[in-house]
Computed example of a mutant assay.
Amino acid sequence: MNVTVIDPGATLGVLGGGQLGAMFATAARRLGYAVVVWDPDPEAPAHRLADSSLIRPFTDSAACQDFIGRVCAVTYEWENVPADLCEQLERDVPVRPSSRVLRVIQDRIEQKTFLRAHGLPVPAFHAISSPEELCRQRALEYPLVCKTATAGYDGKGQWKIARAEDGAAVQEDLARSLRPGSRWILEAWLPFEREVSILVVRGMDGAVRTYPLVENVHEEGILRQSTVPADVPATVADQAAVMARSAVEALDGVGVFCVELFLMSDGRLLINEVAPRPHNSGHYSLDACTVSQFEQQVRALCGLPLGEVRLLSPTVMLNLIGDEVLLATVSPAAQDLLREPGAVVHLYGKRVVRPKRKMGHISFLAATREAALSKASVFRSRLVPPHS
Rank of each mutant, 00 (worst) to 15 (best):
V3I: 12
T4Q: 10
G9D: 05
V14R: 03
G17V: 02
L20K: 01
M23P: 00
A28C: 11
L31D: 12
Y33I: 08
Y33T: 09
V35E: 03
A44F: 07
A44V: 06
P45G: 05
A46R: 04
S52T: 10
I55S: 12
R56K: 11
R56S: 10
P57K: 07
T59H: 09
T59Y: 05
D66C: 11
F67W: 09
R70I: 09
R70E: 09
R70N: 09
C72R: 14
A73M: 11
V74M: 10
T75F: 07
W78A: 02
N80Y: 10
N80P: 06
V81Q: 00
V81W: 01
D84M: 11
C86D: 02
C86E: 02
E87K: 08
V95F: 04
V95A: 03
S99R: 12
R108E: 04
I109V: 15
T113F: 06
F114I: 10
L115W: 11
R116Q: 13
A117Q: 13
A117F: 09
A117S: 12
G119A: 08
S129K: 11
E132N: 14
T148N: 01
D154M: 08
Q158D: 13
W159A: 11
A164R: 14
A164Q: 13
E165D: 13
E165S: 10
E165G: 02
D166C: 04
A169T: 06
Q171D: 08
E172P: 04
A175W: 00
S177D: 13
R179K: 15
P180M: 05
A188L: 13
A188S: 15
R194S: 09
V196T: 02
S197L: 02
R202L: 05
V208G: 06
E219P: 02
E220H: 15
G221Y: 15
I222E: 14
L223C: 07
S226M: 08
P229L: 11
P229W: 02
A230D: 00
V232Q: 06
A237F: 08
D238L: 09
D238V: 10
A241M: 12
V242S: 14
A244C: 04
V248Q: 01
G255C: 13
C258W: 06
V259H: 03
F262R: 01
M264S: 09
D266Y: 15
L269A: 07
N272S: 10
N272C: 08
N272W: 12
E273C: 02
A275S: 10
H279I: 03
H283C: 03
H283S: 03
T290D: 10
F294V: 03
Q296V: 09
P305F: 05
V309R: 01
R310V: 07
L311P: 06
L312M: 14
V316W: 01
I321Y: 03
V330W: 14
A334C: 12
L337I: 02
L338S: 07
V353T: 14
R354E: 09
K356G: 00
R357N: 05
R357D: 04
M359N: 01
S363C: 14
S363F: 01
F364V: 00
E370W: 05
S381R: 12
S381Y: 01
R382I: 09
P386D: 10
H387F: 15
S388G: 14
